[in-house]
């Protein structure tokens, strides 16, 4: 099918998925214990009744659901009751910048470093470098990123005093440690994936032909091998992104970064329904878009997939 039809079909599926997620989120929020108001215990029943009326919480669940949906369609994410009664959309938009910057930096660093590491491991398979790299990858994957975060703080901020402990507005410097903490897991995954794929690629017939042409080992790996080894890696970009999103929750807290993750944690602790639902939805949108991008990337990197539906 043509590219246009493909996109259309995917968009339809994306909308259906998002609809399902928003519904489930709504249901979950409604049936969780706890109150949406600050200082709940100090309210009198009359006051609570007035608040409920004001915020529409006295209406039956079904009606509230419909109001919620219509609001979503208009871009209205509700009011944040715990954080100054401001519209959630305003609350989140001010915080989305740091999170995106951090996420992109970590993703970039993680994949690029991981690819280089994985390729070198494959080229010198079973050598000392390879063993060292593989061990590092296992450690990187096993130790949670918040522990790395604290370790990094300890070493670079407290002992060596090179970088700030937990600061955001100091320009690029302040993003270095949190980026590193978040990048370690993606780097480990990328390195392991690339290593496996690259070993297979380096043993392939076309790699041998490249050698028979007189190509050097390095060029065979990076010029011929990489594009082929990359394909399976693209598959895990989706889950990798999810990991980064969830990882950012804790890391942002540790480094006091005013991002969405930090806000999300605060909202959960205070039962700020509107914000919780909105952030969940936001993450879902992000993931669904990333998956679409991944599928398009497949076609870009592997010409066989791209041309599968085209005329000969």
């Amino acid at each position: 099918m043509t590219f246009f039809k493909f996109i259309l079909k995917r968009l339809a599926f994306m909308l259906a998925t998002l609809f399902l997620i928003s519904t489930i989120t709504f249901l979950l929020m409604n049936f969780l214990p706890g109150s949406p108001y600050q200082n709940e215990e100090k309210l009198t029943p009359v006051q609570r009744q007035m608040m409920n009326e004001k915020y529409g919480l006295d209406k039956p669940a079904g009606e509230r659901y419909l109001i919620y949906l219509s609001g979503l369609a208009k871009g209205d994410l509700g009011i944040s009751l715990q954080f100054g009664n401001q519209p959630v959309s305003k609350l989140l938009s001010s915080r989305i910048g740091p999170s995106i910057q951090l996420g992109l930096q970590a993703m970039l660093l993680g994949t690029v470093a991981g690819i280089i590491l994985g390729t070198i491991s494959a080229m010198y398979q079973n050598s000392f470098i390879d063993t060292f790299a593989s061990l590092s990858a296992i450690i990187g994957r096993s130790i949670p990123n918040f522990i790395f975060a604290v370790l990094l703080q300890l070493v670079f901020a407290v002992s060596l005093k090179w970088l700030p402990i937990a600061l955001w507005d100091d320009g690029f410097r302040s993003t270095i440690l949190p980026t590193l903490a978040l990048a370690i897991a993606p780097m480990a995954d990328a390195a392991r994936f690339i290593r496996t794929e690259m070993i297979e690629v380096l043993n392939s017939d076309y790699a041998e032909l490249a050698k028979a042409k007189g190509q050097s080992k390095v060029r065979i790996a990076f010029v011929h091998g990489l594009r082929n080894a990359l394909i399976p890696l693209i598959t895990i970009i989706g889950p990798m992104t999810v990991g980064l999103m969830t990882g950012s929750l804790v890391v942002e807290n540790i480094f006091a970064i005013p991002g969405i993750g930090e806000q999300f944690v605060k909202s959960i602790v205070t039962n700020d329904y509107a914000t919780i639902m909105s952030v969940t939805l936001l993450y879902s949108v992000l993931l669904v878009v990333i998956i679409l991008i991944v599928d398009i990337l497949y076609g870009l990197i592997d010409p066989r997939i791209r041309l599968a539906g085209a005329k000969q």
Partner: peptide
Amino acid sequence: MTALNPTM
């Protein structure tokens, strides 16, 4: 069938 690089 396998002698050529499929992505080049």
